[in-house]
Design a protein around this nucleic acid. Structure first.
Lengths: 251, 251
DNA sequence: CGTTGCGTTGACTTTTGTCAAGGGAGGTGG
DNA sequence: CCACCTCCCTTGACAAAAGTCAACGCAACG
């Protein structure tokens, strides 16, 4: 029987709150110095949420922000008509809890079981106002999130389901600890659809086309293996080129 | 001859750098205290750019950030294939100059003639690290931009050209100094299309449908007048309902 | 007075959404 | 241990929406 792929097999959980940003080359860089981590530790409480649990709902009073230690969460805006667009996924070392006028602006739900540091707002605000260096790190992290949101918006504007999906897969690969041709997808295809502004059916068809083009394989719904790196990256630019592969003998 | 609508008829330019955010109810709130404005003033230089001028290009060294005093600018990512998605528009009291690793992440161009305060990075960084209160205001502004970017992403995920266009118009109305049923659009329909992930033709057709539904009129391409506020807001939720208005007597 | 940029409209193509049906993996309870 | 159930993924047929290509009108500008 094949290995499972929907559990959270991570091992190392940082003993202190952490903050990282993605640099231009796709690597991840730590923001906090050991001193700053020690500053945050006393006001942080470690908590665990199970898969599918709602961390908070949009409109609720924003009493704390969270630092993800392990697991994956998603942020979404609730829509009455059943459409719940996903604004982003949160990975370890990300900050969760964007608020406006004391209320959370969207709903956050755990995609996998997750462990977080809870940082109560009043204590955190006091800390940030006292320590301008630490405050500046949070500003940098916010700018990082802003860039991520802009990249998301660019993706949504792109035509072509293959283009969006391929870029999404490339993004997910960046979030993995080690570069590899295997991409683990913690979320369902439905979640991917909500994130890319498409339907699950369109995601499924895009996967099928990418599989038939021999660009990747999907051993399991939550695992993708890239077969042809060059055409994988090319598909993220222009999409699939509709050549006539049927004319190639024995294809 | 009718009045012109593509010039910049604004009058009051703040004598000091300003920063505002949009609150939950759509109003705009000042972030900086007079003391903080005085702190910024000595490092700021006032500059003027003409309509169509490029403030900076993506990839260029990020030597400064800018505080818009008057006029409108747009931020876009350059794409080789002619598609230049617009990530956002900047209005007075907005901050321009998002960078990553010392390089601007997108290109900013003036939509109208504009006046800006130029804040050199080294001097600003020094100021922010010395004054944690001021730094915190910039963090709040960054969170505001983040919310705006998320709202943009939600719009792009929404189906229906009328829905997106109507929400965009509502957004533009918020940016105007006084609430009114007139909405001035500083940007071209092509810019709107790039912002909403649609083509100019689709924008044009959406305008036509909204006009035919008697929801609004467009006296000039850069001016919209809302005729039916209720249905205007409704169109931003569900889009146009394809009833058969011809069947309703004298409606 | 021509040129140019922008907006509009129409005909047609392509893509995606929608509806419906079916299948496989995992989990639960007998 | 097996039956059953549920959730999610897949596929097909069709409808709806948006993109593309092309032509035209209009106003501003030189």
């Amino acid at each position: 029987m094949p290995e499972r792929h929907d559990a959270t097999p991570r091992l190392a959980i940082a003993a202190r709150p952490c903050l990282t940003v993605t640099t231009a080359d796709g690597a991840r860089r730590d923001l906090l110095t050991p001193r700053e981590r020690e500053l945050l530790a006393p006001i942080a409480t470690l908590m665990r949420v199970e898969r599918g649990a709602v961390l908070y709902r949009q409109g609720a009073e924003a009493s704390a922000i969270y630092d993800v230690a392990d697991g994956v969460l998603k942020s979404m805006t609730l829509h009455p008509d059943g459409k719940n667009p996903i604004l982003g996924f949160f990975f370890p070392q990300d900050i969760v809890g964007l608020a406006e006028c004391g209320r959370y602006v969207n709903t956050v739900q755990a995609v996998t079981a997750a462990v977080l540091y809870r940082l109560p707002r009043p204590a955190l605000d006091r800390l940030l106002l006292r320590d301008s260096e630490l405050d500046h790190q949070f500003l940098i992290k916010a700018c990082d999130e802003l860039r991520a949101a802009q990249y998301h918006a660019v993706m949504l504007g792109l035509a072509g389901a293959e283009v969006r999906l391929t870029r999404f897969l490339a993004l997910m690969r960046q979030m993995q600890p080690a570069a590899s041709n295997q991409i683990e997808l913690p979320m369902s295809h439905g979640d991917i659809a909500d994130y890319l502004g498409l339907t699950p059916e369109t995601i499924s068809r895009a996967f099928t086309r990418l599989r038939r083009a021999r660009i990747l394989t999907c051993p399991y719904p939550h695992l993708v293996r890239v077969l042809d790196e060059d055409r994988f990256l090319a598909a993220g630019e222009d999409g699939l080129h509709h050549g006539h592969p049927a004319k190639v003998a024995a294809d």
